[in-house]
Nucleic acid binder design. Structure first.
Ligand SMILES: [Mn+2]
Ligand SMILES: [Mn+2]
Ligand SMILES: [Zn+2]
Ligand SMILES: [Zn+2]
Lengths: 143, 143
DNA sequence: ATTGTAATTGAGACTCATTCTCAATTATAA
DNA sequence: TTATAATTGAGAATGAGTCTCAATTACAAT
Protein backbone atom coordinates (compact mmCIF):
# COMPACT_ATOMS: atom_id res chain seq x y z
CA UNK A 1 0.00 0.00 0.00
CA UNK A 2 1.58 3.27 -1.01
CA UNK A 3 1.76 6.75 0.36
CA UNK A 4 -1.04 8.20 -1.73
CA UNK A 5 -3.58 5.53 -0.88
CA UNK A 6 -2.71 5.87 2.77
CA UNK A 7 -2.96 9.65 2.64
CA UNK A 8 -6.38 9.35 1.06
CA UNK A 9 -7.50 6.90 3.73
CA UNK A 10 -6.45 9.32 6.43
CA UNK A 11 -8.05 12.29 4.65
CA UNK A 12 -11.39 10.56 4.62
CA UNK A 13 -11.10 10.36 8.37
CA UNK A 14 -10.00 13.97 8.75
CA UNK A 15 -6.51 12.88 9.73
CA UNK A 16 -3.10 13.95 8.56
CA UNK A 17 -0.36 12.00 6.88
CA UNK A 18 2.74 11.83 9.09
CA UNK A 19 6.00 9.96 8.74
CA UNK A 20 5.38 8.18 12.02
CA UNK A 21 2.09 6.79 10.78
CA UNK A 22 3.65 5.76 7.50
CA UNK A 23 6.53 3.95 9.17
CA UNK A 24 4.05 2.05 11.32
CA UNK A 25 1.88 1.18 8.35
CA UNK A 26 4.83 -0.17 6.40
CA UNK A 27 6.06 -2.25 9.28
CA UNK A 28 2.58 -3.64 9.94
CA UNK A 29 2.22 -4.70 6.32
CA UNK A 30 5.68 -6.25 6.33
CA UNK A 31 4.56 -9.15 8.48
CA UNK A 32 3.24 -12.19 6.65
CA UNK A 33 1.97 -13.68 9.86
CA UNK A 34 0.94 -12.43 13.26
CA UNK A 35 2.48 -9.56 15.13
CA UNK A 36 1.98 -7.60 18.32
CA UNK A 37 2.39 -3.90 19.05
CA UNK A 38 5.49 -4.20 21.22
CA UNK A 39 7.41 -6.25 18.67
CA UNK A 40 6.50 -3.82 15.94
CA UNK A 41 7.58 -0.93 18.13
CA UNK A 42 10.96 -2.46 18.97
CA UNK A 43 11.65 -3.35 15.35
CA UNK A 44 10.92 0.18 14.25
CA UNK A 45 13.43 1.47 16.78
CA UNK A 46 16.02 -1.05 15.70
CA UNK A 47 15.83 0.06 12.08
CA UNK A 48 16.61 3.63 13.01
CA UNK A 49 13.18 4.99 12.18
CA UNK A 50 11.29 6.43 15.07
CA UNK A 51 7.79 6.32 16.44
CA UNK A 52 6.72 6.17 20.05
CA UNK A 53 4.82 3.39 21.72
CA UNK A 54 1.88 5.75 22.02
CA UNK A 55 1.90 6.35 18.27
CA UNK A 56 2.18 2.66 17.54
CA UNK A 57 -0.91 1.90 19.57
CA UNK A 58 -2.77 4.88 18.17
CA UNK A 59 -1.90 4.04 14.58
CA UNK A 60 -2.71 0.36 14.88
CA UNK A 61 -6.18 1.39 16.00
CA UNK A 62 -6.53 3.57 12.95
CA UNK A 63 -5.34 0.78 10.67
CA UNK A 64 -7.81 -1.61 12.21
CA UNK A 65 -10.65 0.83 11.74
CA UNK A 66 -9.63 1.18 8.10
CA UNK A 67 -9.63 -2.58 7.61
CA UNK A 68 -5.94 -2.70 6.74
CA UNK A 69 -5.21 -5.01 9.65
CA UNK A 70 -7.38 -6.95 12.04
CA UNK A 71 -7.21 -8.19 15.59
CA UNK A 72 -6.59 -11.90 15.62
CA UNK A 73 -6.94 -12.38 19.36
CA UNK A 74 -6.50 -10.91 22.76
CA UNK A 75 -4.25 -13.23 24.72
CA UNK A 76 -2.80 -13.05 28.21
CA UNK A 77 0.32 -11.82 26.45
CA UNK A 78 -1.36 -8.97 24.62
CA UNK A 79 -3.21 -8.23 21.42
CA UNK A 80 -2.25 -10.03 18.23
CA UNK A 81 -2.80 -8.52 14.81
CA UNK A 82 -2.42 -9.64 11.23
CA UNK A 83 -2.71 -7.86 7.93
CA UNK A 84 -6.03 -8.26 6.20
CA UNK A 85 -5.10 -7.30 2.67
CA UNK A 86 -3.63 -10.11 0.60
CA UNK A 87 -4.22 -12.70 3.27
CA UNK A 88 -6.63 -15.52 2.51
CA UNK A 89 -9.24 -16.33 5.11
CA UNK A 90 -8.47 -18.78 7.88
CA UNK A 91 -9.45 -19.46 11.48
CA UNK A 92 -7.42 -19.78 14.65
CA UNK A 93 -6.56 -22.07 17.51
CA UNK A 94 -5.23 -20.27 20.56
CA UNK A 95 -3.17 -22.03 23.21
CA UNK A 96 -4.23 -20.60 26.55
CA UNK A 97 -0.96 -21.81 28.10
CA UNK A 98 1.80 -20.42 25.89
CA UNK A 99 -0.21 -18.01 23.74
CA UNK A 100 0.75 -19.75 20.52
CA UNK A 101 -1.67 -19.31 17.66
CA UNK A 102 -2.24 -21.96 15.02
CA UNK A 103 -4.03 -21.30 11.77
CA UNK A 104 -6.36 -23.67 9.98
CA UNK A 105 -8.79 -23.70 7.14
CA UNK A 106 -11.61 -26.10 6.42
CA UNK A 107 -13.71 -25.89 3.30
CA UNK A 108 -16.25 -28.14 5.00
CA UNK A 109 -16.55 -25.76 7.93
CA UNK A 110 -17.10 -22.82 5.64
CA UNK A 111 -19.78 -24.63 3.65
CA UNK A 112 -21.71 -25.64 6.74
CA UNK A 113 -21.71 -22.08 7.97
CA UNK A 114 -23.14 -20.97 4.65
CA UNK A 115 -25.92 -23.51 4.99
CA UNK A 116 -26.73 -22.45 8.52
CA UNK A 117 -26.96 -18.84 7.40
CA UNK A 118 -29.19 -19.74 4.48
CA UNK A 119 -31.51 -21.67 6.76
CA UNK A 120 -31.89 -18.69 9.09
CA UNK A 121 -32.17 -16.12 6.34
CA UNK A 122 -28.96 -14.52 7.50
CA UNK A 123 -26.58 -12.98 5.01
CA UNK A 124 -23.16 -13.73 6.42
CA UNK A 125 -20.27 -11.62 5.24
CA UNK A 126 -17.47 -12.62 7.59
CA UNK A 127 -16.80 -14.68 10.67
CA UNK A 128 -14.31 -15.36 13.40
CA UNK A 129 -13.78 -18.83 14.78
CA UNK A 130 -11.38 -19.11 17.67
CA UNK A 131 -10.75 -22.46 19.30
CA UNK A 132 -9.08 -22.18 22.69
CA UNK A 133 -7.21 -24.97 24.41
CA UNK A 134 -3.77 -26.50 24.72
CA UNK A 135 -1.31 -26.92 21.88
CA UNK A 136 0.63 -30.11 21.30
CA UNK A 137 3.69 -28.87 23.22
CA UNK A 138 1.77 -27.69 26.25
CA UNK A 139 -0.24 -30.90 26.38
CA UNK A 140 2.99 -32.84 26.75
CA UNK A 141 4.27 -30.52 29.45
CA UNK A 142 1.08 -30.96 31.45
CA UNK A 143 1.66 -34.68 31.82
CA UNK B 1 -24.52 -27.88 41.30
CA UNK B 2 -24.35 -28.96 44.91
CA UNK B 3 -21.70 -29.21 47.54
CA UNK B 4 -20.99 -32.91 47.10
CA UNK B 5 -20.47 -32.78 43.36
CA UNK B 6 -18.20 -29.79 43.78
CA UNK B 7 -16.25 -31.49 46.54
CA UNK B 8 -15.77 -34.49 44.30
CA UNK B 9 -14.58 -32.33 41.43
CA UNK B 10 -12.01 -30.72 43.68
CA UNK B 11 -10.94 -34.06 45.12
CA UNK B 12 -10.14 -35.38 41.70
CA UNK B 13 -7.77 -32.45 41.36
CA UNK B 14 -6.25 -32.93 44.79
CA UNK B 15 -7.88 -29.77 46.04
CA UNK B 16 -9.89 -29.02 49.14
CA UNK B 17 -13.42 -27.84 49.55
CA UNK B 18 -13.52 -24.38 51.10
CA UNK B 19 -16.36 -21.99 51.77
CA UNK B 20 -14.69 -19.34 49.64
CA UNK B 21 -14.58 -21.63 46.64
CA UNK B 22 -18.19 -22.64 47.19
CA UNK B 23 -19.40 -19.05 47.42
CA UNK B 24 -17.62 -18.26 44.18
CA UNK B 25 -19.03 -21.34 42.47
CA UNK B 26 -22.57 -20.46 43.50
CA UNK B 27 -22.27 -16.89 42.35
CA UNK B 28 -20.76 -17.96 39.02
CA UNK B 29 -23.62 -20.36 38.40
CA UNK B 30 -26.19 -17.73 39.36
CA UNK B 31 -25.64 -15.79 36.15
CA UNK B 32 -27.75 -16.79 33.19
CA UNK B 33 -25.71 -14.63 30.89
CA UNK B 34 -22.20 -13.26 30.83
CA UNK B 35 -20.20 -12.09 33.81
CA UNK B 36 -16.73 -10.86 34.66
CA UNK B 37 -14.51 -11.53 37.68
CA UNK B 38 -14.71 -8.04 39.16
CA UNK B 39 -18.51 -7.93 39.08
CA UNK B 40 -18.68 -11.32 40.69
CA UNK B 41 -16.22 -10.23 43.35
CA UNK B 42 -18.13 -7.06 44.19
CA UNK B 43 -21.46 -8.89 44.35
CA UNK B 44 -20.01 -11.44 46.72
CA UNK B 45 -18.86 -8.65 49.00
CA UNK B 46 -22.22 -6.93 48.82
CA UNK B 47 -24.04 -10.05 49.96
CA UNK B 48 -21.95 -10.24 53.08
CA UNK B 49 -20.09 -13.37 52.09
CA UNK B 50 -16.41 -12.97 51.65
CA UNK B 51 -13.74 -14.04 49.25
CA UNK B 52 -10.77 -12.06 48.05
CA UNK B 53 -10.09 -10.95 44.52
CA UNK B 54 -7.19 -13.37 44.44
CA UNK B 55 -9.50 -16.24 45.35
CA UNK B 56 -12.04 -15.18 42.76
CA UNK B 57 -9.45 -15.29 40.01
CA UNK B 58 -7.98 -18.53 41.30
CA UNK B 59 -11.33 -20.22 41.59
CA UNK B 60 -12.62 -19.06 38.23
CA UNK B 61 -9.54 -20.70 36.72
CA UNK B 62 -10.35 -23.90 38.52
CA UNK B 63 -13.96 -23.77 37.37
CA UNK B 64 -12.88 -23.20 33.82
CA UNK B 65 -10.49 -26.12 33.96
CA UNK B 66 -13.33 -28.25 35.28
CA UNK B 67 -15.59 -27.15 32.45
CA UNK B 68 -18.13 -25.59 34.79
CA UNK B 69 -17.71 -22.21 33.15
CA UNK B 70 -15.94 -21.04 30.03
CA UNK B 71 -14.26 -17.94 28.71
CA UNK B 72 -16.52 -16.22 26.24
CA UNK B 73 -14.12 -13.47 25.24
CA UNK B 74 -11.29 -11.23 26.26
CA UNK B 75 -12.42 -7.66 25.83
CA UNK B 76 -10.73 -4.34 26.55
CA UNK B 77 -12.55 -4.44 29.86
CA UNK B 78 -11.38 -7.88 30.88
CA UNK B 79 -12.30 -11.49 30.55
CA UNK B 80 -15.93 -12.48 30.11
CA UNK B 81 -17.21 -15.83 31.33
CA UNK B 82 -20.46 -17.74 31.09
CA UNK B 83 -21.62 -20.90 32.78
CA UNK B 84 -21.28 -24.10 30.85
CA UNK B 85 -22.77 -26.40 33.42
CA UNK B 86 -26.47 -26.91 32.74
CA UNK B 87 -26.32 -24.69 29.68
CA UNK B 88 -26.13 -25.86 26.14
CA UNK B 89 -23.31 -24.54 24.04
CA UNK B 90 -24.23 -22.31 21.14
CA UNK B 91 -22.66 -19.91 18.69
CA UNK B 92 -23.67 -16.48 17.47
CA UNK B 93 -24.66 -14.53 14.41
CA UNK B 94 -24.29 -10.80 14.79
CA UNK B 95 -26.17 -8.36 12.58
CA UNK B 96 -23.84 -5.47 11.85
CA UNK B 97 -26.84 -3.29 10.95
CA UNK B 98 -29.19 -3.59 13.90
CA UNK B 99 -26.91 -5.34 16.38
CA UNK B 100 -29.27 -8.24 16.81
CA UNK B 101 -27.67 -11.47 17.99
CA UNK B 102 -28.99 -14.83 16.83
CA UNK B 103 -27.97 -18.06 18.44
CA UNK B 104 -27.47 -21.31 16.64
CA UNK B 105 -26.09 -24.76 17.24
CA UNK B 106 -24.81 -27.33 14.78
CA UNK B 107 -23.71 -30.76 15.81
CA UNK B 108 -21.98 -31.11 12.46
CA UNK B 109 -19.97 -27.95 13.03
CA UNK B 110 -18.86 -29.14 16.46
CA UNK B 111 -17.78 -32.52 15.15
CA UNK B 112 -15.70 -31.04 12.38
CA UNK B 113 -13.95 -28.77 14.83
CA UNK B 114 -13.11 -31.76 16.98
CA UNK B 115 -11.61 -33.52 13.99
CA UNK B 116 -9.54 -30.51 13.04
CA UNK B 117 -8.18 -30.30 16.58
CA UNK B 118 -7.37 -33.98 16.64
CA UNK B 119 -5.50 -33.69 13.37
CA UNK B 120 -3.33 -30.88 14.72
CA UNK B 121 -2.77 -32.41 18.14
CA UNK B 122 -4.59 -29.52 19.74
CA UNK B 123 -6.70 -30.11 22.83
CA UNK B 124 -9.64 -27.78 22.30
CA UNK B 125 -11.63 -26.89 25.36
CA UNK B 126 -13.88 -24.15 24.07
CA UNK B 127 -14.49 -22.01 21.06
CA UNK B 128 -16.19 -18.87 19.90
CA UNK B 129 -17.77 -18.65 16.47
CA UNK B 130 -19.22 -15.33 15.51
CA UNK B 131 -20.73 -14.83 12.09
CA UNK B 132 -21.20 -11.21 11.14
CA UNK B 133 -23.59 -10.01 8.47
CA UNK B 134 -27.19 -8.93 7.92
CA UNK B 135 -30.21 -10.48 9.57
CA UNK B 136 -33.40 -11.31 7.71
CA UNK B 137 -35.08 -8.03 8.65
CA UNK B 138 -32.17 -5.83 7.66
CA UNK B 139 -31.77 -7.65 4.36
CA UNK B 140 -35.32 -6.71 3.43
CA UNK B 141 -34.76 -3.10 4.43
CA UNK B 142 -31.68 -2.90 2.24
CA UNK B 143 -33.68 -3.64 -0.90
C1' DA C 1 -11.30 -35.32 69.47
C1' DT C 2 -6.58 -33.95 68.81
C1' DT C 3 -2.83 -33.14 66.14
C1' DG C 4 0.34 -32.56 62.22
C1' DT C 5 0.84 -30.54 58.07
C1' DA C 6 0.05 -29.31 53.50
C1' DA C 7 -3.34 -26.56 51.12
C1' DT C 8 -5.59 -22.23 51.12
C1' DT C 9 -6.54 -17.57 51.97
C1' DG C 10 -6.18 -12.41 51.74
C1' DA C 11 -3.96 -7.87 51.70
C1' DG C 12 -1.53 -5.58 49.03
C1' DA C 13 2.72 -5.36 46.23
C1' DC C 14 3.79 -6.20 41.67
C1' DT C 15 3.58 -6.79 36.48
C1' DC C 16 2.80 -5.33 32.15
C1' DA C 17 -0.22 -4.05 28.23
C1' DT C 18 -2.47 -0.14 27.10
C1' DT C 19 -4.15 4.62 27.62
C1' DC C 20 -3.65 9.25 29.05
C1' DT C 21 -1.48 13.92 29.70
C1' DC C 22 0.23 17.93 27.95
C1' DA C 23 4.02 20.78 26.31
C1' DA C 24 6.52 20.87 22.12
C1' DT C 25 6.31 20.00 17.30
C1' DT C 26 4.37 19.72 12.73
C1' DA C 27 1.08 19.32 8.67
C1' DT C 28 -1.84 21.95 6.04
C1' DA C 29 -4.85 25.49 4.40
C1' DA C 30 -5.34 30.36 3.95
C1' DT D 1 4.54 32.86 5.67
C1' DT D 2 1.36 32.37 9.18
C1' DA D 3 -2.31 30.68 11.98
C1' DT D 4 -3.93 26.81 14.12
C1' DA D 5 -5.57 22.45 14.83
C1' DA D 6 -3.66 17.85 14.68
C1' DT D 7 0.03 15.05 16.16
C1' DT D 8 3.81 13.47 18.71
C1' DG D 9 6.54 11.49 22.63
C1' DA D 10 8.16 10.87 27.38
C1' DG D 11 6.62 9.28 31.05
C1' DA D 12 2.76 9.06 34.37
C1' DA D 13 -1.47 6.69 35.14
C1' DT D 14 -4.65 2.92 34.77
C1' DG D 15 -6.34 -1.53 35.45
C1' DA D 16 -6.73 -6.55 34.87
C1' DG D 17 -4.53 -10.17 36.53
C1' DT D 18 -0.67 -12.50 39.24
C1' DC D 19 2.36 -13.20 43.01
C1' DT D 20 4.07 -13.22 47.88
C1' DC D 21 3.99 -14.88 52.29
C1' DA D 22 2.34 -14.93 57.02
C1' DA D 23 -1.82 -16.46 59.06
C1' DT D 24 -5.49 -19.64 58.75
C1' DT D 25 -7.87 -23.87 57.73
C1' DA D 26 -9.18 -28.53 55.84
C1' DC D 27 -8.65 -33.01 56.63
C1' DA D 28 -6.22 -37.39 57.24
C1' DA D 29 -3.93 -40.00 60.59
C1' DT D 30 -3.72 -41.07 65.13
MN1 LIG E 1 -3.94 -15.70 11.27
MN1 LIG F 1 -22.03 -18.81 23.47
ZN1 LIG G 1 0.87 -23.98 24.04
ZN1 LIG H 1 -30.26 -6.76 11.61
Amino acid sequence: MDKDIFTKLLRERGQRFTKERFVILQKALSYDGHFDPETLYLQIRKTGSKASRASVYRTLSVLRECGVIQQVAKTEHGTVYERTYGHRHHDHMLCVQCGDILEFYSEELEKIQENICKKQGFQGSSHTLEIRGYCKKCRKKKK
